[in-house]
Design a protein around this nucleic acid. Structure first.
Lengths: 216, 216
DNA sequence: GTCTATACGAGGATAGAC
DNA sequence: GTCTATCCTCGTATAGAC
C-alpha cells in the first residue's frame, strides 16, 4: 500500500503539517474515506490502522469533520498546481501547436492523477459531493470552472495568432474538456477495481485528435 | 416535496410493490440516501418520516441494505427504458436527420432526469459508486456502455445511408456522448442546490450543433 | 403488519493521569 | 501528546404481544 509517492505526499506538500502521527491519521483517513465514504468510516476504524488510541486523535483534530476539511484544503492547493498561471500562457503557447499544447496539458494531468493519494481524494470528492458543500464547491469551481477558464484563455491566444478559427472560445473549451472529465471519472473507477486503463487513456488522446480535426 | 410524479412513481413502475408503507419507506430512503449517502442515513432517520416503528421496517425489508438494493434494481429497469430497442433504430432513423435524432434522444433523456425521484437515484449512484459494486456496475454498464453501444449502432445505420462520413462509429459515439455525461453531472449538481440549469441545458444543445458541424 | 420492549455493539467525544 | 477509563447517544436488529 505504501510507496515513495504516498509516504512523502504530505511531507512534500504540506509545510504546515510536520507531525508524523498527524500525517498518518490523514493518510489513513484518505484511504478509508475513499473506499467507504466519510460517514462509513469511524474514528475507531482510523485508529486501528494508525495504532494510537482514540483520544489521541482529538489532540490533532478537534473532531472528525476537521480531518476531512484538512484533506480538502490541501487538495485544493494541489489542484491549483495542475494548470500553469494564465499569464504564462503566451510564452507556453509560443512554441506549441494546438495539438501539442493539449497533449502536454493532458500528460501533466495524468501525472497528477497517477498519484494514488490524489486519486483517492478525487474519489472522496465524488462521494461527498452531495453531502458536503466544500466538496461540491471544489468540484464545480476549482476543477470544472478553473479548467474551462484556463482553456478559454488559451484558445483566445491561439485565435489571436490565427492558429485556430474564430469560434466562441468558451464553446471550444467546453467541447474539448467535457469529454475528458467523463474519461477521468471512468479512469478513476477502473483504477479502483484494478482494471486496465489503457483503453481510456487511448480514448483521451484519440479525443485530442478528433477535436483538432474538428476545429480546423 | 411531493407532487404527482413522485407520488405515483412506484405505483406506475413497480407492479411487484403494491404496499403503501413499503413505497413510503422506499421514497423516504431515496430522499435521505441522496442527501447523506447510505451510511449517513439510519433506519431511525427513515422511520421518523414514514411514521412507523423501527421493527415494522423489518417486515418489509430483511435489512437496511435490501432497501438500497430494491432502489437500484428498479432504477435499472427505468434506465433501460431511456434508449429504444436497437432493432427499432432503422425505422426511427428513417425520417430523421442526424441532428434531429440527437435532439430527440436528448429531450427524451431530459424527460427522464426531470423526474425528481430519478434525479435522486442518480445522486445515490454517484455517491455509492466506490462503496457499492452494484452502483458501480449500473453506472459503467447500464448507463455508460449501453448508451455508447446504442449510439454506435445508430451511427452505423446513418453511415449506411451515407448521412454521415465513414469515421469509426464508436469514436463518434464517444465524442458525442461523453461531454453530455459531464453536463448531466453538472445539471444534477446544480438542481441539488436549486440553481438555474438553463445554461447547462443550452450547453447540451450547443454541443449537438458543434458535433454535427464537426463531422460534416 | 403494526406496536412495545429490549439487546448490544458501534460511534463521537471528553476527563484526567502520566 | 500519549494513554486508560468513561459517557451517552445512535444504530441495527430481534422477540413477542395484539
Amino acid at each position: 500500500m505504501t510507496n515513495v509517492t504516498e509516504d512523502n505526499y504530505f511531507d512534500i506538500n504540506l509545510n504546515m503539517i510536520n507531525n508524523a502521527t498527524k500525517i498518518k491519521i490523514l493518510e489513513t483517513a484518505i484511504d478509508l474515506f475513499s473506499q467507504k465514504g466519510y460517514s462509513g468510516v469511524s474514528i475507531r476504524d482510523i485508529i486501528k490502522e494508525v495504532k494510537i488510541k482514540e483520544s489521541s486523535v482529538y489532540k490533532h483534530f478537534k473532531n472528525k469533520n476537521e480531518i476531512l476539511e484538512t484533506i480538502f484544503i490541501n487538495f485544493r492547493k494541489e489542484v491549483a498546481k495542475i494548470c500553469p498561471p494564465v499569464n504564462s500562457l503566451k510564452s507556453i503557447l509560443s512554441n506549441l501547436s494546438t495539438k501539442e499544447f493539449l497533449e502536454k496539458g493532458l500528460s501533466q494531468f495524468m501525472n497528477h492523477i497517477d498519484n494514488p493519494i490524489m486519486r483517492k481524494i478525487w474519489r472522496i470528492i465524488y462521494i461527498e459531493q452531495f453531502r458536503d458543500s466544500l466538496a461540491r464547491e471544489i468540484y464545480l469551481k476549482d476543477i470544472i470552472h478553473t479548467t474551462i477558464d484556463f482553456l478559454e484563455e488559451a484558445f483566445i491566444i491561439m485565435q489571436a495568432k490565427q492558429q485556430i478559427p474564430p469560434m466562441d472560445p468558451r464553446t471550444l473549451a467546453i467541447e474539448y474538456q467535457y469529454p475528458i472529465f467523463t474519461m477521468i471519472t471512468e479512469y478513476i473507477l477502473l483504477k479502483f477495481d484494478n482494471i486496465e486503463t489503457i483503453e481510456v487513456e487511448r480514448k483521451m488522446y484519440n479525443h485530442i485528435e478528433f477535436f483538432c480535426k474538428a476545429i480546423l
